[in-house]
Design a protein around this nucleic acid. Structure first.
Lengths: 197, 197
DNA sequence: GGTCAAATTTGAACTATATTCAATATTGGG
DNA sequence: CCCAATATTGAATATAGTTCAAATTTGACC
């Protein structure tokens, strides 16, 4: 008998199975039976690790979002602009590598499910914070700065999703476009109010 | 539009009930019984008008998205920039007036449900087309222009959602910000490639 | 190596809810 | 007033999600 080392816990393996299934099928399409079958366990066991199917879904979602946040963690030893560039490259790389999962993650969500929305919101808010950290103190006072950056995060998401469907640009070009847009948006905040009113 | 429509059809009334329910609860939270109760009909009747609950949800979603597209229809008698401004104002007005529905609509969707995704995609694509229409012929050849505009549509969505939570800016200021960002993004496409590394 | 309690796993029973359908009621044109 | 098409019902059915008591495995301790 060969002993395989299962370093991964059952719970972790279940989440991996869920990651696979939910990236290929919608929440409703994935039955508890499917999950159990794919994991070679009985249906009942799933309920030993997760209270409901919905909670299982949330766990899977949290797993992939935290992985995304980890892989794009800002390198504070770099100067802000370079840090941003590296972070964006990592972001697009993640999107490319886990394309299906990434799409499901961003465009997913179960109805107006507040819990799902909260998780995605947390991810977006984290990115907003990170961008804010990279700005000089003098800029941080701009009115509606946070609002504008939140918009920019939406820009990057939409950009990446469209990019996945047709790789017209290189990751470097995408990154450049995203950075230029961010700078331009912040610049336009300066002008805001001084011009029209 | 001279002669008024008669009393609303049952189907239309059902969609209105759905609009109300789905803007306040997630897909799973809304039971067929709830819909039937809210509409004062038997549950069987729902199946006379819609094949499944899912199809009913899609009908509700289509109704609100087509309403959004209608209310933001571009006024071609205006020059492009003014047309964009008016369109954006209408967009933010819709978001404000139907806040709950609007949020549910954009952040909703049932899992990776391809049909829901297709509807939302259609809305976004329509906006991309409309923006493209407003650009001079000379600009339309820019590489990755469509990609960038798709990103910008994501910017506007995220901006509006964040704005709904805290009305820091006026609709006019929001519009100005969105327009400036669009112009800046397009400008940065010109510079792209000529500068980078 | 044996014992036993805790942790894990099972499968069948249970439940909730989406869906079907035959029967009944309503409507409107001839 | 008739009757065929349309609209509506409520009970029956099917399809999952969920619960649970019992069986199995694990690992710590003697």
């Amino acid at each position: 008998m060969l002993h395989k080392q299962k370093r991964k816990t059952r719970r972790e393996r279940l989440i991996e199975v869920g990651l696979d299934l939910f990236s290929r099928h919608s929440y409703d399409e994935v039955a508890i039976d499917d999950i159990a079958a794919a994991a070679n366990i009985s249906k009942g066991l799933l309920y030993y690790y997760f209270p409901t199917k919905h909670d299982f879904y949330l766990a899977v979602l949290r797993h992939s979002t935290s992985q995304l946040l980890e892989l794009t963690e800002p390198d504070t030893s770099l100067e802000p602009l370079e840090r941003l560039r590296v972070g964006l490259l990592a972001y697009f790389t993640f999107a490319e590598m886990h394309a299906r999962t990434y799409v499901a993650l961003l465009r997913g969500g179960v109805g107006v499910d507040p819990e799902v929305a909260a998780i995605l919101n947390h991810v977006r808010q984290t990115y907003v914070e990170r961008v804010l950290q990279g700005l000089p103190e003098s800029e941080r006072q701009l009115p509606a700065l946070r609002l504008a950056i939140t918009g920019w995060v939406g820009f990057v998401e939409a950009l990446s999703l469209a990019w996945l469907e047709e790789h017209q640009l290189s990751k470097e070009q995408l990154t450049e476009l995203a950075i230029r847009t961010l700078l331009a948006t912040i610049t336009s905040l300066h002008e805001q109010g001084s011009s029209s009113r």
